[in-house]
């Protein structure tokens, strides 16, 4: 376990980059949104939601992917095993998702307490993902990090192991499979059933349950793939 924590430092030692970029970009997005919505007079009710928060998730996912392609060869060079490296990476991403979830929940509370930064802005309290339970809200914020990061990590591991061609071939194959599935659903006229299934899913299943399941599968897939990867 100590070794895993030592290796985890490989991701956090340059923490300024790890933290500053995602939160810096999100802060910029927040400030722009506040400026824009403050300059719109009498914004019509319900139209003050914004998707600026997604920048935080996207930048975090990019950093997670890049950290594999950059830190993995270094770790291997320092005599770290693939297994230890991957467990350390998982530890960092789990901790980070939880930490970010808590931070976003605090910002959610601030937004609520200040009446949407004084202008009724919904930057953190976005409709549908705004749930009443505090613990649940943290999970709702945290799980999409895991979902996106582990998909990115999986893709990065695939890249490290199979190169550019391997990554794009897999991407192409994935597009074909999902395209054929969509064609099948259209051909059979199953879309109605699909929407019905989605709409009957509990909000928490859609926001936490299913993304967590996909994240878990991607994490396991990455673990399996990295065991035979060479830097």
């Amino acid at each position: 376990m100590n070794r895993i924590v030592d290796v985890a430092r490989m991701h956090t030692v340059a923490w300024v980059n790890q933290l500053l970029w995602p939160w810096g970009i999100m802060t910029a997005s927040l400030l722009i949104n506040i400026l824009i919505f403050a300059s719109i007079d009498e914004a019509s009710p319900g139209k003050t939601s914004t998707g600026g928060l997604s920048s935080l998730y996207v930048v975090s996912a990019i950093i997670a992917g890049v950290s594999i392609s950059q830190v993995f060869p270094f770790a291997l060079g320092m005599g770290v095993t693939r297994r230890t490296f991957y467990l350390a990476t998982t530890l960092v991403n789990l901790t980070q998702a939880l930490l970010y979830g808590v931070l976003l929940y605090l910002l959610n509370l601030i937004e609520g307490g200040t009446g949407g930064f004084g202008i009724g802005l919904h930057f953190f309290r976005i409709p549908y993902i705004d749930v009443s339970n505090g613990l649940l809200q943290i999970l709702v914020y945290a799980v999409p990090f895991l979902f996106l990061n582990f998909l990115c990590i999986f893709a990065a591991v695939w890249y490290v192991r199979f190169g550019t061609n391997g990554l794009f071939a897999t991407l192409a194959a994935t597009i074909v499979v999902f395209g054929l599935l969509a064609a099948l659903v259209t051909w059979q006229g199953w879309w109605g059933d699909v929407w019905h299934w989605l709409s009957t899913q509990h909000q928490i299943s859609l926001l936490v349950g299913w993304p967590a399941l996909v994240a878990g599968l991607a994490a396991l897939g990455g673990m399996a793939a990295i065991r035979r990867a060479n830097a």
């Binding site: 070794r3 340059a14 060079g77 297994r83």
Partner: peptide, 22 residues
């Protein structure tokens, strides 16, 4: 993938890559 054995080894190579943030 043998941690115990690899911890006793250091391998310095000309081609070692370092992460950009370091």
């Amino acid at each position: 993938e043998n941690e115990r054995a690899l911890m006793k080894v250091v391998f310095i190579k000309e081609s070692q890559k370092y992460p950009t943030a370091y």
